[in-house]
Computed example of a mutant assay.
Amino acid sequence: MNLLTKITELTELTNNEKVLADYILANPKNTLSFKPKDLAAAAFVSVATVYRLINKLGLTGMGELKVELASTLRTAEASTDIDYDYPILESDTPFQITENLSKIYQRTIDETLNFSDPEALVTAVQVLLDAQVIDIYAASANLFFAQNFKFQMQEIGVLVNVPEEDYIQRLSAANSDEKHAALVISYGGRGQTLNDVVKILHENQVPIVLITSAQDNPLAKYAAHKIYMASIENHYDKISSFSTRMSLLMILDTLYAVYFNHDYDRNIDFKITNYKKMNKKLR
């Protein structure tokens, strides 16, 4: 597990430790240049707090913290010149727009990989494999990505529900039990409907896999399993969700691929056989 994910997953932090953790997540590159006292001053905490957080991360000192942090950030170093919220200027040519978006997509892939935890992916897929019913809860444009995941799974004979209307989402959650698995897509946990849905799912003891940003999300406390999206963009102040969409698509495609790989030969045969059946009907 990379260092940013470790920090995000920490629980039972004191208020000052939480402040320090949030500072490192928001300023990882600055942290690389700090001595313990400099980091403490920048985050407005004590040096003792710095060392307590380092210990809770299972590290031996500031040097090891920097090594792990540098390793986590190494793939993103080449893309620091792009404003991910406003990558397009009025004066940009179509070529410049294409080039800037390309840099955003590559940085997004790198950051998604940095946050990726293979063990968490395996565990999340096992939750889906064990479930009799899989439900995806999302809002706004994320519903399109949920529907695409539903299509992918249906191609291998796995039915996935994607309730869309607020009332139907609440009803679906209320009807769920421990035989269900819930994929919940929420960047920051700001939507009231998803907040209500997750609380109902938790009360009904439904296993929850939360796909979220590395920022604070009030839904995280209800989810036993978490997968983190790239967290570059501002939630509101931006032209579009270029990075977030790319990261979410990558995560859902990876979940599908790992699920597919669990019974590879069977899934290949299933898809080919069914496409042959459909092609016969079209002739």
Results as ranks from 00 to 15, higher is better:
S231P: 01
F95G: 02
I211Y: 08
T93L: 10
G157A: 09
Y222P: 03
D196A: 13
I168H: 11
D269G: 03
T5P: 01
A173P: 03
E203T: 13
V162E: 07
N175D: 11
A131R: 02
N261P: 00
Y228R: 07
N274P: 03
D135I: 12
N100G: 12
V184A: 04
Q154G: 09
L282W: 05
N261Y: 04
H262E: 13
L255D: 00
A76H: 05
A182I: 06
T5Q: 12
I200T: 15
T11G: 03
L69Y: 03
A224T: 11
Q152P: 00
I227T: 05
E68R: 14
H235P: 02
S79P: 00
A78N: 14
N27Q: 05
D253F: 00
M1Q: 10
M250L: 14
A214C: 11
K221D: 04
N30D: 14
K226L: 13
E203F: 06
G191T: 15
L57C: 07
A230Q: 02
K37W: 09
S91K: 07
D237V: 05
A48D: 14
E12Y: 10
Y228K: 07
S240R: 10
L69M: 09
K103D: 01
H202I: 00
V158Y: 03
L32P: 09
N100W: 02
T123E: 02
T49F: 05
Y256S: 04
L73V: 10
A230P: 00
L3A: 10
S91V: 10
Q126R: 12
V206C: 08
A41V: 00
E12L: 07
H180W: 09
G63A: 08
A181V: 06
Q215A: 14
F149S: 03
P36G: 09
L10T: 06
E17M: 12
S46L: 04
T31D: 02
L128N: 07
I208N: 13
T8G: 08
T75I: 04
Y167K: 14
N142T: 12
D92T: 06
A224W: 00
V184E: 01
E119Q: 12
N234T: 05
T98P: 00
A182P: 05
R283G: 07
K271M: 15
N27S: 09
Y228M: 05
V160R: 02
N274M: 10
H235T: 13
Y187T: 06
I156R: 02
T75D: 15
S240W: 07
K271H: 07
Y84F: 15
I88M: 06
H235E: 13
K238M: 12
S241N: 12
P87S: 02
T123M: 07
Y275M: 14
Y23S: 03
A146S: 15
Y84A: 10
M246P: 01
I97L: 08
L32Q: 08
S231D: 03
T80K: 15
D177Q: 00
E111Q: 13
M153E: 03
L59A: 09
S231N: 08
E155T: 12
N142R: 05
M278C: 09
L13I: 02
A42N: 13
E178Y: 12
F242E: 01
K199A: 12
E155S: 13
Y86K: 13
E155L: 15
V158E: 05
G157D: 09
L32K: 04
P36H: 06
D269H: 06
K179D: 13
M229P: 01
M153N: 04
